[in-house]
């Protein structure tokens, strides 16, 4: 079978050699490109990751600065409103109405008697099959907020995010977004209203009471409810916008 071990392309034409070189080059090029791409997919280079972290940190710092700027501009706006209205009884009346509506719409900070509820995720036991049970979920928070509002709370905030008519409490991956801002355990829920009624509704009679009597104790989620003579609520930070709705005449 073996006619002596010698390698041969049959004819030693230059065209054959070029064709073979070209084909091998094409195959190894495609292979290398594919290997490079896969390697890039599996582990983003440390340099790029660091760069992304830097960009996020910078964006967050810029965000904080802009929030402060918005706050100072709002103060100036309100001062200007008051100043331009002074002396004109018509405008003063309108201005008072604007302030009242802002207050109702949660667009200004508020204070009053109320309760402070804190919740802390439980430690997840090793080898636990369902770690979901040991953490506070967005739907837990929604149920608690609904219970507080049903019991007559006049204003509620979670971790410094005031709940307004346009608020959202959503779950995104492992974190909870309140008003599109990321929050995490421990959760501090502040509510203004009759402290006894709120506390009662929360843990004994309201729609969320089963959480406090059964679910949280079972999984070791820590909570405490404190009645207070004075609690403070921040303002709702975002704009209340109506882009599509119009007034019915």
């Amino acid at each position: 079978m073996l006619r002596g071990v010698r390698f041969s392309f049959g004819s030693r034409e230059v065209a054959s050699m070029i064709a073979i070189a070209f084909v091998i080059a094409a195959a190894s090029f495609a292979g290398t490109v594919l290997v490079k791409q896969r390697a890039g997919l599996e582990a983003p280079p440390a340099g790029r990751r660091g760069e992304l972290i830097d960009r996020i940190t910078a964006a967050e710092a810029e965000n904080r600065r802009l929030v402060q700027e918005i706050e100072s501009l709002r103060k100036r706006l309100q001062a200007l409103e008051r100043a331009s209205a002074s002396g004109n009884s018509q405008l003063e009346k309108l201005n008072a109405e604007v302030r009242r509506l802002r207050f109702i719409a949660a667009l200004v900070p508020a204070y009053g008697p109320g309760i402070v509820l804190t919740l802390r995720d439980a430690r997840i036991p090793a080898n636990e099959e369902n770690p979901q049970n040991y953490i506070v979920h967005d739907y837990d928070l929604r149920e608690i907020i609904n219970g507080l509002l049903a019991a007559g709370a006049e204003g509620v905030a979670i971790n410094g995010e005031r709940i307004s008519s346009a608020s959202s409490i959503r779950c995104v991956g492992p974190t909870i977004l309140v008003n599109a801002r990321r929050i995490a355990s421990p959760y501090t829920i502040v509510a203004v209203g009759d402290p006894d009624a709120l506390s009662d509704a929360l843990t004994r009679t309201g729609p969320a009471s089963h959480l406090f009597s059964q679910v949280f104790p079972l999984y070791g989620i820590q909570f405490s409810v404190q009645k207070k003579a004075r609690v403070e609520l921040p303002r709702y930070q975002r704009e209340l916008r109506l882009d599509y709705a119009k007034v019915v005449k």
């Binding site: 073979i20 070189a21 070209f22 080059a25 195959a27 190894s28 495609a30 292979g31 290398t32």
Partner: peptide
């Protein structure tokens, strides 16, 4: 063939 291989990987 070796030239082709080296060329292809190099380009890649």
């Amino acid at each position: 063939s070796l030239i082709g291989l080296v060329l292809g990987i190099g380009l890649g």
